[in-house]
Design a protein around this nucleic acid. Structure first.
Lengths: 313, 313
DNA sequence: TAAAAATACTCCATAGGTATTTTAT
DNA sequence: ATAAAATACCTATGGAGTATTTTTA
């Protein structure tokens, strides 16, 4: 028993320790002087003395030996410094990162976008943004307009880019781009001579459409309703959750479709697909919206990104 | 200019930030609730609210979005948590290490010892000590008694072990072991029959002695003075800074010497060296001392070590 | 209506200061 | 005599509480 480690009283509930005292302690340790530390910290010597004293009482051990004019840390002091020093680094790091963040020199930006914005509008915007804020990490997830608004509403992302407005009091929609829906058909001899078509003829054709959550679909249904008809009057062969899938299907002569002009530019250019006018629908505008959650504080990064989105408007 | 990072106001002198607030912030972040965090920290909800508010004012940005019943960290909040979280770890680490130190489960012990203690007395003591406190790192430097006392006086070590007392008001000497000085000669035929010798005959022989800082040397001089003589009356061929060097020299028949019994046990056993009694010096006690600096606070480890040194006394 | 946060207020502990004494160089 | 730390004492900020109101699910 004589020579086994003693179990001294354990320290009081440690959450009570004031970390500010550690900073003062470290200054004293480094300056090897109470008064110099006081100067460095813009405090007075008695204040510093008092703080060291309370630390010594807290740990119930002396931290410095007072040797007349000079002081020397005790072993306990050495131990405390070794493990307390990092506090200073962390404090500095916190300030550095917060200030970098607030100055938008670093950070994260999570975006949810529906197909057309994700594939045809955002890549160039994100590219320009990245040039200016290279340390900001942009993450974009792709779904349909319904998914986008859900992501924004539930705070999973900073911003959404959707092809349809959804009624939700917490969400703010702002138009940032527009496109037109066009009627597309395979570029084969069956369609070679066709320049335009009437809606009633179109209703007979095998139609490919997007799923119900899609902005393209919503726009289409909305417009048909205004014309006194609906998708029920059409010959729908399939609903696809992807515009690319529809393009593939049209190219393979599975059917025809009405989709965003932006998404078929390349296919039209390569003559895989062609546009045919619909007599009743000379103009078929569709808009794209930035979606924000009004309840969430936008990060500075998010606000800057919006400036890029609306640049030149 | 439109799209370059904005330089917002830099944060106020960062030393003013209270790290305690970070702990509260982290609790709120982790609990995703002011009131739950309050409970965890044994505070009240308004107190926590107040602290978060002051942090928000300090950083001049909101850290949580208050969404009715629930709260969500903002991007700034995420950033602060990421870099503030380590504060909690450090605080815990400080307490852990300090308490381990105070319970002597870890630490350092620096010792300065003169030759005889270092080679013949301390190894076993340190060995036993290490068994009980395996995490304590013992460092022993070896010099002569003068060097040892200097090390202690200047606070370079926790403890000294010397073969002589030196007058210094700041030092405390405590005898912890003793030995006797003996007259040793090479074990050759010249000495084969000799059992004892008179001091005046010894004075003619080629004597090897330690350097002036040595405790052995000091003891020798002291004793000679009491017998009304001094080293000046001897035939000194060399002063060596090491007892081992002297033993080598005696073995090689370079001369004879008067050294610590402890240090020549092995050489006597192997019949390289033999002891010859000096008629006037039947007993030639010499003591070894623990040296402490009275001005320095002993670490708990140091105090425990002393218990080992004086074990069984 | 109930649960959570904000607000308004009170109180006192303590961080900080000034003035002075003690100690050792 | 001087430089540094300790001591004694005072003040005011702000940390923590209670009581209440506001908000929203």
């Amino acid at each position: 028993m004589a020579h086994s480690p003693k179990s001294s009283a354990t320290l009081a509930e440690y959450t009570s320790m004031n970390l500010g005292l550690i900073e003062i302690f470290c200054a004293v340790y480094e300056e090897k002087s109470f008064s110099k530390a006081a100067k460095r910290l813009h405090l007075t010597q008695p204040t510093v003395s008092g703080h060291i004293k309370s630390l010594e009482e807290y740990f119930n051990t002396s931290l410095f030996d007072r040797l007349g004019r000079e002081i020397q840390p005790t072993r306990a002091g050495e131990m405390l410094y070794r493990h307390g020093r990092p506090v200073l680094e962390i404090k500095k790091a916190i300030h550095e990162h917060m200030s970098r963040f607030l100055n938008q020199l670093e950070g994260k930006l999570d975006i949810s976008a529906s197909t057309i914005p994700a594939e045809y509008l955002l890549p160039t915007i994100i590219g320009r943004f990245h040039k200016v804020y290279p340390k900001v990490e942009v993450t974009m997830t792709v779904s349909d307009s319904r998914g986008v608004t859900a992501d924004v509403a539930q705070g999973r992302v900073d911003l959404g880019f959707a092809g349809a407005r959804l009624k939700d009091g917490n969400l703010e929609f702002r138009k940032f781009a527009s496109d037109r829906l066009i009627f597309v058909v395979p570029n084969n001899k069956q369609w070679a001579a066709v320049k335009s078509i009437q809606l009633k003829d179109l209703q007979q054709l095998p139609l490919l459409i997007r799923e119900p959550g899609s902005g393209t679909r919503a726009t289409l249904e909305d417009r048909l309703a205004k014309l006194g008809t609906s998708l029920a009057d059409f010959n729908i062969v399939a609903q696809f959750g992807s515009t690319s899938a529809i393009k593939q299907a049209v190219t393979a002569d599975v059917g025809i479709s009405i989709i965003s002009n932006l998404s078929v530019q390349r296919e039209i250019h390569w003559r895989l697909i062609k546009e045919v006018r619909i007599d009743e629908l000379q103009t078929f505008e569709r808009d794209f919206f930035v979606v924000r959650n009004k309840k969430r504080t936008p990060s500075p990064t998010c606000e800057s990104f919006l400036e890029f989105v609306f640049a030149g408007k």
